[in-house]
Amino acid sequence: MAVRMAGFSVSDAIRESQGLLNKSDFIDENGKIDYKRLVEELNKISRKMSREIKLLERI
């Protein structure tokens, strides 16, 4: 069981990704997170990111 394994800090990675989305945009009137919309929005951002990488790589 005593196997070592690499690990990177979750808090550091979260700090790097801060500001990607606004939390209040995904909370409904009951205070619940709308996961479906949240995931859809992230996927949309990711598609935009892919397009940007592809365009810049062509330079």
Binding site: V10, S11, A13, S17, I33
Partner: peptide, 30 residues
């Protein structure tokens, strides 16, 4: 076709919104 850092950015963008409070010492392995 998805680079590591792109997946990472999205995943931690999601975690930032999900996590109410962070536990110290949590780590990830990609």
């Amino acid at each position: 076709t998805i680079r590591y850092q792109q997946a990472k950015k999205m995943i931690f963008g999601l975690l930032e919104l999900l996590k109410v409070e962070l536990e110290e010492g949590e780590e990830y392995r990609p």
